[in-house]
Amino acid sequence: MAMLKVDGLTKQFGGFTAVSNVSFDVAEGEILGLIGPNGSGKSTTFNCIAGMYTPTAGSVKFEGGEIGGLKANQVCHKGIARTFQIPRPFRNLSLLENVALSAHFGSNAHLSRAQCWAKAEESLAMVGLPTDATTSTDGLGAASLKKLELARALATGPRLLLADESLNGLDHGEMDQAADMLERIRKEKGITIVWVEHIMGVLMRVVDRVVVLDHGEKIFDGKPADAQTDKRVVEVYLGETEH
């Protein structure tokens, strides 16, 4: 059975349809790439799943239960964690506090204070960030901030991770590292991942399947290798092909 089932999802802003009748499934243990150029509706789709937007029509089911229209904090409690495209750390808190906070509020386990801090250290270590209590978010570069986003998401104890354009603003080495990280998260934690990107590059190496969106509609759903040869996908990414 599919872990996440998006069915006929539509989101309109006033008269503008950002996402139109999009359906796809995510199987448990899978890494799904959700890609498309700028303005294709992937972020809107993402935000409808994550509880930032209420879908205009259609349904989003997680582990059999409807989650479309729930608030972001409720979605988090269902077992879905997210990262933000542009990292949004809590600048007024230390690195460790940032993550301990999500361990406390994000999980349903009612962890004690000590357990929250332990969980935060574990999550920070997993993504390779310092775990001492005093490090602030001030000196962190783009790559570290992305890692913090991941650590914060992991600390909520999710079964599904929604990663929003994780590689924006990274160099090639960092991109490879980040891709490996997502693979490791699945392997070691057994977390299912939906990875939203607009570049195809590194993503293709890691994902099991890709869903490609364009102008708010799904144009491809299948193996990454097939996507690279699919006529419509190539058109979307490289512009009109000559006939």
Partner: peptide, 11 residues
């Protein structure tokens, strides 16, 4: 600091 980010971690 950031209401959306706070909500996203379950607050």
């Amino acid at each position: 600091q950031d209401e959306d980010a706070a909500a996203s971690v379950g607050i």
